[in-house]
Design a protein around this nucleic acid. Structure first.
Length: 886
RNA sequence: GCUUCUGUAGCCCAACGGAAGAGGCACCAAGCUCAGAACUUGGCGAGUGGAGGUUCGAAUCCUCCCGGAAGCACCA
């Protein structure tokens, strides 16, 4: 739907002619403005208001201020806000802060583009603060509340001072180090590109030029040192989605195997390979190393001219390829290095090659080639004519190397393996490793897929790395007292082939803190993931200028009780934050090892996206009847809402037309919160109708309810429908509470409240049943308002006030249910014969199984279905059903 | 290829191993309307992606297959 339908029905106003009191109309605009202001003034979301209560830290991932928010972003904040309000009502001292992950590429790119187009520069700071202003306004409009006094922005010197401080601490503890590494470089744009700016085919995402690799000295954090703890402690997390845990496990990628050494023929050198299949050692017919492996160059030097050229060309080609993914599982290529290695157990010479399928950054960068038992090796061997030697035989079959069409990678029995013949291969594996260990030619090893974290960025809009390079003293950390190293204003964003900061003379040139000779500052900035790896701690001391935080305060509020955000941050941010927390634990600044006890990964909101063959992704407003405004037919696909696909739905028109409460309610109702959902604007009307019905139901009852208590007494003599609604009220409290507690099932919680309203509307006897009837009505309506408050807070506040309460609905406790009141007096249960429902019987709620059994067997329809046959078995499921088996 | 998730009325989605339907959208009918929308009341509508298995009983558990999503992938 391009433009929201302008027809909002006007709520009926009771006609004065009927001489009934004028009821107020549901003026959501006025109501929402009023209560938003009230919450701000009253400090509803200020943490530490109730220090006598248990704390609860609810945190929604802070966003990157990219522009404006769409309804998909809204889901995140609304879920968090509903939880926060619920926890306030549950009596917690709630902390729910918000901030901005404000350093990063888009702001800088906007500046570069503006600078290139017309000499009218937009400073990233202005771009960022403008966006923050808009987004904050949007969050307010949703009725989402935070403790804004703790607001932080990672681009603020008061924040990045401590990001730099954290860097220094890591450096001090030898967890930050420098190393040469290739970066993506676009020769056209004259700039370094982040990985995400490189397209799949290895071209620059802006100009389409092929990206090349450039070697630069860069800073790393030694996260691999924490690999085992990051993996093991996943077990300690109280409640994280399985899929996120699975992703982290895969990301860390712990592999147990063995390292085996092959002596290089005619040299003292030993080449180490990593393998998980030591059992196939006797099947080795060649050995390959990654093109980047140091031995490649050494071998190449000894080669005759032609061979050397071949190797060099191959290596150059592979390096160029590295920008894109080296073709997955496709053709394998290699060249001989003109050398041989010695098999550690047989002493045979084995040919040494370099091949593109060997990766330098996994294991040791060298692979033993076992064509018979590894598919990649098999393909490579077939291509270059290496022999296939079978050393694992499947049970009850014999493999013939001549006829094999693919590698045999399963388990079997060792053959052609000398003293290890006839052993099951999994046993043979450890025996072979033992034998190698005895000869000091191998040992069990563990490798990880996790790499050290490269944090250098040759970019302007980030926190400067606080080190100084001095000709005399080398790398010198900036003294703590000189932090923050201020990001200078005057950087020129025109790409010039190095970090923009390198062009800022006053920034670069400084004096060495140690020897006071002239020295140069580091001009790279930090990866923005460093900023976000610790922000959840800074909320505890957002304005503290002396310290990163006070440990005892952090230890009080953390770990975060509930972290909410997208699963797309499952690996990077969530692993980095865990790493930093463990480091802070190790240096005794915090007393917990995991930052987030519970994580909730909400699903994404999708919508149709339209692609015009000429104009690319186009907004829905430019599409009608399957055609773009340019006249071309568009391709329409479902995609998650995003700026790039131009399919984000702005919240403002919806809030304007239906109100924030309606948008919130629909967003919560759209489906299971952890699952992706399709935004369907036409469905919003359902949520709006519901709120309107709630409003109306309360308005109708109000004139009768003043002075009536909310506790109905002596309902035994009340009419059935009044008794039933009292029961329904308590059942609904139970249901809604369980749905929230048991995994944020707001969709079913809202449905339960809708059900309650439907039931309330059916009751005929509230008035005729006297005081108990009215008390039951008040109980029902007040409970309804309380249960609705976390989801649709504005209307709930307004109705709560109308019901005669002077305090905010959030000052009132979340309702509790009376288990006794939930129990039905009489229940109907189905009776099955051989699993098919044949009849129903009514029994008192507390009746024993025997009564259900007797009633069922006495039922005429059951007797008919039995056809005179005696029951062989009767299964009674208490309160649920009876099954008669013949 | 591997890992995780997922498939229930026209659509979005509920159902501790126990009556296939809670809620919403759409649709139909009546009421209300000059009319449409809105509103009120009532109604229609799947046998749970497919095939087996376990069970007194399966949407739910197991196996295989088909379809969708996400993450990781020449990881030795």
């Amino acid at each position: 739907m391009a433009t929201p339908d302008a027809r909002v029905y006007s709520p009926p106003v009771t006609s004065p002619a009927k001489s009934e009191p004028m009821t107020r109309r549901y003026d959501y605009k006025q109501i929402e403005a009023r209560w938003q202001q009230h919450w701000n003034r009253a400090g509803l979301f200020a943490a530490g208001r109730r220090t006598d209560r248990p704390k609860y830290y609810a945190l929604v991932m802070f966003p990157y201020p990219s522009g404006t928010l769409h309804v998909g972003h809204g889901r995140n904040y609304i879920i968090g806000d509903a939880l926060a309000r619920y926890k306030i009502m549950k009596g917690y001292d709630l902390l729910t802060p918000m901030g901005w992950d404000a350093f990063g590429l888009p702001a800088e790119n906007a500046a570069i583009e503006a600078a290139l187009k017309e000499g009218q520069p937009v400073h990233p700071r202005d771009y960022t603060s403008r966006n923050i202003k808009v987004m904050k306004q949007q969050i307010h409009a949703w009725g989402v509340g935070y403790d804004w006094d703790r607001e932080i922005a990672s681009c603020h010197p008061g924040y990045y001072k401590w990001t730099q401080w954290l860097f220094l601490k890591l450096l001090e503890n030898k967890l930050a180090y420098r190393k040469q590494a290739p970066v993506n470089w676009c020769p056209q744009c004259q700039t370094v590109l982040a990985n995400e700016q490189v397209e799949e085919d290895g071209t620059c995402d802006r100009c389409g030029t092929a990206v090349v690799q450039k070697n630069l000295e860069q800073w790393y954090f030694r996260i691999t040192k924490y690999a085992d703890r990051l993996l093991d402690d996943l077990d300690k997390l109280e409640d994280w989605p399985e899929r996120v845990v699975a992703m982290q496990e895969a990301w860390i990628g712990k592999t147990e195997g063995a390292e085996i050494e092959f002596k290089v023929q005619g040299s003292d050198e030993r080449l180490r390979v990593f393998t998980t299949r030591a059992d196939t050692l006797f099947g080795v017919t060649f050995l390959v190393v990654a093109p980047e492996h140091p031995i490649v160059a050494k071998c190449a030097q000894k080669l005759p001219e032609a061979g050397r050229k071949r190797v060099t060309e191959f290596v150059v080609k592979c390096r160029a390829q590295k920008a894109m993914q080296r073709t997955a599982a496709g053709d394998k290529e290699g060249v001989p290095l003109g050398a041989h290695v010695i098999h550690p157990l047989t002493g045979e010479p084995v040919a040494l090659w370099t091949a593109d399928y060997a990766l330098m950054d996994f294991g040791t960068g060298a692979v033993m080639g076992v064509p018979a038992h590894d598919q990649r090796d098999f393909l490579f061997a077939k291509k270059y004519g290496f022999p296939v030697r079978v050393v694992i035989q499947p049970k009850g079959a014999a493999l013939d190397p001549a006829t094999m069409e693919k590698a045999f990678e399963e388990d079997g029995v060792q053959v052609h393996s000398g003293e290890f013949d006839n052993l099951p291969n999994d046993f043979g594996r450890s025996k072979i490793v033992e034998a190698l260990e005895a000869r000091e030619l191998g040992r069990p090893t563990v490798t990880y897929r996790l790499r050290d974290w490269l944090i250098s960025r040759q970019r302007y809009w980030g926190a400067p790395i606080p080190v100084i390079y001095c000709a005399n003293c080398g790398v010198v950390p900036v003294p703590e007292s000189e932090l923050p190293v201020i990001l200078p204003d005057a950087a020129d964003f025109k790409p010039r082939g190095q970090s923009p900061l390198a062009a800022v003379h006053d920034f670069v040139h400084t004096i060495c803190p140690k020897c006071e000779d002239p020295a140069r500052r580091e001009t790279d900035t930090m990866d923005t993931f460093v900023d976000s790896a610790w922000y959840f701690l800074r909320f505890i001391a957002a304005r503290n200028e002396e310290k990163i935080f006070e440990s005892d305060e952090v230890n009080h509020w953390l770990p975060v009780d509930q972290y909410i955000g997208g699963a797309e941050r499952a690996t990077k941010h969530l692993i980095y934050a865990r790493f930093v927390t463990k480091f802070l634990y190790d240096i005794e600044l915090v007393n917990f090892e995991e930052p987030f006890s519970r994580l909730f990964a909400q699903g994404l909101i999708c919508a149709d996206a339209h692609k015009c063959p000429e104009h690319g992704w186009v907004p829905e407003t430019e599409v009608s009847a399957g055609k773009h405004s340019c006249g071309q037919a568009v391709l329409t696909e479902l995609h998650k809402m995003s700026k790039s696909k131009k399919n984000g739905m702005a919240p403002e028109p919806l809030i304007e037309q239906y109100g924030a409460d309606t948008v919130r309610l629909y967003t919560l109702f759209i489906g299971p919160p952890e699952r992706d959902a399709v935004w369907a604007t036409k469905d919003i009307i359902g949520a709006h109708r519901f709120l309107f019905r709630v409003w109306e139901t309360v308005q109708e009852a109000l004139p009768r309810l003043s002075g009536v208590p909310a506790k109905p007494e002596g309902l035994d003599s009340a009419p059935e429908d009044v008794k039933a609604i009292h029961r329904k009220v308590h059942q609904t409290i139970r249901k809604v509470t369980e749905e929230i507690e048991g995994g944020f099932k707001f969709n079913t919680a809202v449905a339960a409240v809708m059900e309650l309203v439907n039931e309330i509307k059916k009751v005929k006897s509230f008035e005729t049943a006297g005081p108990q009837g009215l008390a039951a009505q008040r109980e029902a309506l007040e409970t309804l308002v309380l249960l609705l408050a976390p989801f649709a807070p504005h209307i709930s506040e307004e109705l709560w006030e109308q019901l005669g309460h002077g305090e905010s609905v959030f000052e009132h406790a979340w309702p509790t249910f009376d288990a006794g009141a939930c129990v039905e007096e009489e229940i109907e249960i189905p009776v099955q014969v051989n699993g098919k429902v044949r009849s129903r019987v009514r029994i008192p709620a507390g009746a024993p199984d025997s009564e259900a059994r007797e009633k069922a067997l006495a039922d005429p329809k059951v007797a008919e279905a039995l056809g005179g046959k005696p029951p062989r078995n009767v299964i009674v499921v208490p309160r649920r059903l009876v099954n008669v088996v013949v």
